[in-house]
Design a protein around this nucleic acid. Structure first.
Lengths: 335, 335
DNA sequence: GAGGTTCGTCGAAGCGCTTCGACGGGTGAA
DNA sequence: TTCACCCGTCGAAGCGCTTCGACGAACCTC
């Protein structure tokens, strides 16, 4: 293992000069800096994390808390995680993965043991058990998702309320008078997951504003549930002609179910998805959708964290505005 | 932050005694140990990782290298990753996540910077660019997957060769005479991913042994590709009556395509999947499958790594025997 | 009861790095 | 020319922990 003294010897300077040349925390002449950099390159030197002294520069590791709960769509979560890792690397940080039960206990462990020097928290619930820890911890953190009480925290999310409204407005503009929202599995609402609730609120508010009749149906993610729900929706009086789906794994099965019941999409029924763009575009029927910008949210979270680490002030809540992309699944209300 | 001297003061002993009482590396009287443990509990002490001296106990972090390449099925990879994290936690380790490009450069960085003290490597290719680094690195590692030259490495995997044979034997026993293997997308073979190749070899060998006519078809994972492939298979002379599918995202689309072409499963066509059990069981038609035991592989890998860390010898290659589970998608050859 | 063990504990050294205080040698102002 | 000052560099201290060597005290053994 090559250490700082090796580099110093090769560059003909003292170890502290090497340290300063690399960190830039004190002025170093161009000439010396060049020699140090050359030595670093030739020797393949890399500072040993666990030796960076008590104060000052951290481990350059950030922890990512992803409680992989049931009812969350794995590919979407993974997309978040990957974008966080990529963005973190771009800032010279590595990522420590905390899952499940680690969610709560892990946050404390990571903070106290100095394993990481910042924290990204995913799948935030309205009342999240991790919040007290986050507020009291000296570790800077950013949440992807907005809890009920965001005071003292930093959060990024899609504006799910506005997303719900946008879906309804799109359908209202197409003349639909009765709309339904097919949501996440019931356990997601029971957990009071933040984004799911916000979407419902936006959806309902916009429907009321436009005087549409509306209903909300949580739904499990299997084919049987899709079929049962489709039948139930068609039995309603009046039956919805515009359906918003916020449940990624259900998209294809629900499309199938409607078609098997004899409905053509979008001639007889319009479908709007709330999901990441690739999911909507590669569905069996390309779906008009409000995009959940998973990758951008991950990147944003890391940027905010880096800001905080450098001492810069950051906004408490960052909500990205929703964007609707029309594809093949929506059309005018059937006559 | 509470440090070891705080604990020592409270327990009325010296810091070194606390260290020994906690690590057990020297005999400590029961009485003293109890006092130390009490002090630790009362103060909520946790050893600061980055302070553990140069030699000796590591960071208790292991790195997980997951190059999320195209053509790999995200939920499956995630299942691996989660099982690795869970198993690692059970052994008191945390997990550092390395993705993509980090795959190669990341391995070196992690080793040299002392970020992790062991390494789990996923999605191994026959000639993997990470191998030279692994062989030369002092960092112990375990691969999930077996490369062409496993000398000097430690690998765990499902015995994909035997898995391929098992599929063919099942179909042969049911009287099928013509079989096909639908594999991963072409890029997976081009990359020479280890497990994909092994499956093909086992499949072909068993087919030859049973004097079945056989063919192998790589296939992309979208609906269009599924439809095209189904049509092509049916045009062959003779057309296969038993199809092995080793491509998770293609399972449902391919089933659909066959049924749309008028084939009933399993009356007209038998389908065997090679995939994790939950995927096979929750497919549109429950599929007879050879299980890829993702969770067990992750757990095994961590166990092996812990063994290596403790200096125990470990086998070079651990292959788990495949198991076939009959579900609704296979039956006797149509007459 | 003297000498040899073993047990339990302590102090000090050291890990590789960062950072603080100091210091020599230019440079600019008076 | 002298003094003050700043720039660039160095040596030493210190981070929180582990580990080595040492040392009293109790326990055997002849």
């Amino acid at each position: 293992m090559v250490k700082i003294t090796d580099v110093a010897r090769r560059a003909g300077v003292s170890p502290s000069t090497v340290s300063y040349a690399l960190s830039g925390k004190r002025p170093i002449s161009d000439e010396t800096r060049r020699r140090v950099q050359a030595a670093v390159r030739e020797l393949g030197y890399r500072a040993h994390v666990r030796a960076r002294g008590g104060t000052g520069a951290g481990a350059r590791v950030l922890a990512l808390s992803v409680p992989l709960r049931s009812g969350v769509h794995v590919p979407v979560v993974t997309q978040f995680a990957v974008s966080v890792v990529t963005a973190a690397r771009a800032h010279g940080h590595d990522v420590l993965l905390l899952t499940r039960d680690e969610g709560e206990e892990g946050v404390g462990r990571v903070a106290e043991a100095g394993l990481a020097d910042a924290l990204v928290v995913m799948d935030v619930q309205l009342q999240d058990p991790r919040l007290p820890l986050l507020r009291s911890s000296p570790l800077p953190s950013v949440l992807i998702g907005v809890p009920a009480e965001p005071d003292g925290l930093t959060c990024v999310d899609l504006d799910f309320g506005a997303a719900g409204e946008l879906c309804v407005e799109h359908l209202a503009r197409l003349g639909h008078r009765t709309v339904a929202l097919v949501g996440s599995p019931p356990e997601v609402y029971v957990r009071r997951t933040a984004f799911a609730r916000r979407l419902v609120r936006g959806f309902t508010a916009a429907a009321d504003r436009h005087r549409l009749s509306s209903a909300v149906h949580p739904c499990g993610a299997d084919r049987g549930a899709a079929r049962a729900l489709a039948e139930r929706l068609l039995r309603e009086q009046p039956a919805p002609t515009g359906v918003v789906v916020h449940n990624e794994p259900l998209l294809d099965p629900l499309t199938d179910a409607f078609e098997q019941l004899g409905l053509r999409i979008p001639a007889d029924l319009s479908l709007v998805a709330v999901c990441p763009a690739p999911v909507a575009a590669s569905a069996r029927v390309p779906l008009t959708s409000v995009t959940v910008p998973a990758a951008e949210l991950g990147t944003r979270a890391v940027h905010l964290l880096v800001q905080k680490l450098s001492g810069a002030p950051v906004p408490q809540v960052t909500l990205l505005p929703p964007r609707l992309t029309e594809r093949a699944s929506t059309g005018p209300r059937p006559v």
